[in-house]
Computed example of a mutant assay.
Amino acid sequence: MIDRLGWVDRYVAGREDWVWHELRQLGSRVREPAFAPEAQAVCDEMARRARSNIETLVARLREQGYRFHRNDDNQTPTEPHTPPGPGAEEHLHWLEQRLGPVPMVLSSWIRIVGDVWLVGTHPQWPNSAAADPLVLELAGSRYPDSDIRGYFADEFEAWQEDQDTPFLLPVAPDQCHKDNVSGGGAYGVVLPDASADAHFVGEAGMPLVSYLNWAFRHGGFPAITGDEAQWQVIHQLNEDLHRL
């Protein structure tokens, strides 16, 4: 039985897993007027925590001498986090009109977090890009001189020609491409989807919030398999990060 009363209070009190379980049980029913306002409020609180975690990770990595760069041969420097711009609401509206319902967590991410790109190189960890650093580009805020909507539209049109699988909105390069190595398809989220949480498809499929918690537990590098020195870096990065 779903008891929507107190979702936000219970989430803030540390019962995040319980709240997400109930929200996911509802599926598209979460859009019903009885549930939607509080469900969206939970997703917004999730996004505020995620943004705080990202800002903390960026600051800690910079203190450690980490170089944020693109996944190209020149390792072109780039900004790791770009907050939402003034067109965030318009961008969200376009996604919903063009691709169908967007999960509530994506709405919150676009409006509150923006884009994150933690690809780079750590001075104590030359192959850090191979650890699948967190990247999530939904808002297009990292690309002020171009419109990410054109890229999304092209991907959607290509999918419409062969609809054997659900449409994946590409939101990040895969683990190999982050390391500037030819790999597989981009990581993505399934659309359309009227649920609260999104279904993220990366190296494995899982709810987006679960993936983000996994990434933050590993200091933004969920695929780390390194030595003790690298794990010490991770422990310094993930200390006291918020659980989503």
Rank of each mutant, 00 (worst) to 15 (best):
Ala204Arg: 12
Gly14Leu: 06
Ser195Arg: 15
Ala204Glu: 15
Asn53Ile: 10
His235Cys: 04
Val119Thr: 13
Trp94Val: 12
Gly140Lys: 00
Ala50Ser: 06
Leu92Asn: 10
Trp20Thr: 10
Thr165Arg: 14
Ser195His: 14
Phe200Gly: 07
Asp162Ser: 15
Pro37Ser: 07
Ser146Asp: 07
Thr225Lys: 09
Ala130Lys: 08
Ala186Tyr: 11
Asn180Ile: 11
Tyr211Lys: 06
His69Tyr: 00
Lys178His: 02
Pro126Phe: 01
Leu57Pro: 00
Arg4Ala: 14
Glu155Lys: 14
Val12Phe: 01
His21Lys: 09
Asp44His: 01
Gly120Tyr: 10
Tyr151Cys: 01
Cys176Gly: 00
Arg243Ala: 09
Ser28Gln: 14
Pro192Ala: 14
Glu161Arg: 15
Glu16Val: 11
Val190Glu: 15
Val42Trp: 09
Leu138Ile: 08
Val19Glu: 05
Ala129Asn: 05
Glu55Ala: 10
Ala36Lys: 03
Leu241Pro: 07
Met46Glu: 09
Phe35Met: 08
Trp94Thr: 07
Asn238Gly: 01
Arg217Phe: 08
His235Met: 10
Thr82Met: 11
His242Leu: 13
Arg15Ala: 13
Ser107Trp: 12
Ala88Pro: 06
Trp125Thr: 02
Trp159Thr: 05
Ala198Val: 13
Trp7Met: 09
Gly120Glu: 13
Val181Gln: 12
Tyr151Gly: 02
Gln163Val: 14
Tyr143Phe: 11
Ser182Asn: 07
Glu203Met: 03
Leu241Tyr: 04
Thr76His: 12
Leu208Thr: 06
Leu57Ile: 04
Ala223Leu: 01
Ala158Val: 09
Pro126Thr: 00
Asp145Met: 13
Ser141Trp: 03
Arg70His: 08
Pro83Asp: 15
Leu5Asp: 07
Phe35His: 14
Ser146Tyr: 06
Val209Gln: 10
Val190Cys: 04
Asp164Cys: 02
Gly219Gln: 02
His235Thr: 10
Asn127Trp: 02
Gly184Thr: 11
Glu79Val: 14
Phe167Cys: 13
Tyr211Arg: 03
Asp197His: 06
Asp3Val: 12
Ile224Lys: 05
Val119Met: 02
Phe35Ala: 12
Tyr211Leu: 10
Glu22Ile: 12
Arg98His: 13
Asn213Thr: 13
Val105Gly: 05
Asp164Ala: 10
